[in-house]
Simulated assay, not measured.
Amino acid sequence: MKKMIPFLVVGLFILQLSIPNALAAKKVEDIKVPDSVLNITKENTYPNPTQNLPTLQPSELTSDLIATTKVKIENPNLIRMLNETSVNSTPFALGYRAVIYLGHWPLNYESTETAPNWEYQKVNTNYYDNRGGKANYQIHYVQEAQKVVEGGLTAKVPQADDVKKMMLLRAAEKTNLPLSFQTVVGAGTKKGHVYNIAPKRLGYLYGYVPAVNEKGKVTYGEVYLMLKGNKKMIVVKNVTSQGIGAWIPIQDYISFQFIASDKPV
């Protein structure tokens, strides 16, 4: 009598866009923007692309798999890969066992501090010498040259792009500010707010691109898909954590500092 061989079909078919519900963390109190920091979205001569953060939902299978492990899985790219996975069970799978290695992944990011630096990088200086004048001279902001401001991680880590995406998502949730790892201020960008330079004074109007300093902990692990009979589960091994920080510019905002002096500064 021939023995019946159990079998199971594993395929990669279903494509969905997702992000785990865990990423929809509660937003903390919004950071208050100082009066000296102005939005230049409408005035910016360089149209920065809107930073559309992905809003993904895990498939039913992905949700079931994530629930089988105690380690948080929040990496959007890992969630997307799980969403593209289909496991077809069969009544003849009794006794079947398989372990599929899905790779070494940054699994989640836990934020510990989110703080703004309103003068992250100087991008412009408007200047006028009114020492020979007899009345106030008015100046306003005009961007002299196009400036590209980039942020980044403060240390090298494996799979940095995945880590940056998770940090960006968390920082944006906490601050409710338009964050991006790159922002551009176009030449000729203007703002109508007027600054007065008194007679016998020199006036300096400095423009800065602000940024958020995001700090926290990223957790890594080796991810396995375990198939045991009709059961499916995620197993995470060799879990490690490390501290990480990042500077993330605030897109289309300029922080202004005006100085009037009787001598050059």
Rank of each mutant, 00 (worst) to 15 (best):
I5G: 06
F7P: 05
V10M: 08
L15T: 15
L15N: 15
Q16F: 15
L17Q: 15
S18W: 15
S18L: 15
N21V: 10
A25R: 12
A25C: 10
K26L: 13
K27D: 12
V28S: 14
D30F: 09
V33W: 03
P34F: 06
P34S: 07
S36H: 12
S36D: 13
L38W: 09
T41M: 09
T45Y: 08
P47A: 11
N48Y: 03
P49R: 01
T50A: 13
Q51H: 12
N52E: 15
P54D: 07
T62L: 09
S63F: 07
D64F: 11
K72M: 09
K72Q: 12
P76M: 02
I79G: 06
I79Q: 07
L82E: 03
L82C: 04
N83H: 07
N83W: 08
N83K: 07
V87A: 08
S89Q: 14
R97A: 09
A98K: 13
V99N: 09
V99R: 14
G103V: 01
Y109T: 00
E113M: 10
E113H: 10
T114A: 03
N117E: 12
T125A: 08
N130H: 05
R131G: 05
R131K: 14
G132M: 11
A135G: 10
N136H: 13
N136Y: 12
N136D: 14
Y137F: 13
H140T: 10
V149C: 04
E150H: 07
G151L: 02
G152W: 04
L153V: 02
P158Q: 04
A160P: 05
A160T: 03
A160C: 05
D162C: 09
D162W: 11
V163D: 00
K165T: 14
M167L: 06
L168E: 06
L169R: 07
A171G: 03
E173G: 15
K174G: 06
T175C: 04
T175G: 04
N176A: 15
P178F: 01
G188E: 05
G192R: 09
G192D: 12
V194L: 13
Y195N: 05
I197E: 00
L202K: 12
Y206F: 11
V212F: 04
V212Y: 01
E214R: 11
G216Y: 00
G216T: 00
G216V: 00
V218C: 00
E222C: 07
E222T: 07
M226C: 10
K228F: 10
K228R: 11
N230C: 08
K231Q: 13
M233W: 11
M233N: 11
V235H: 06
V235S: 08
V236C: 00
K237R: 11
K237F: 03
K237Q: 08
K237H: 06
G243E: 10
I244F: 00
G245M: 01
G245D: 04
A246N: 04
A246V: 02
W247Y: 14
I250K: 01
I250V: 11
Q251D: 14
Q251Y: 07
I259K: 06
A260E: 13
D262C: 05
D262E: 10
D262Q: 09
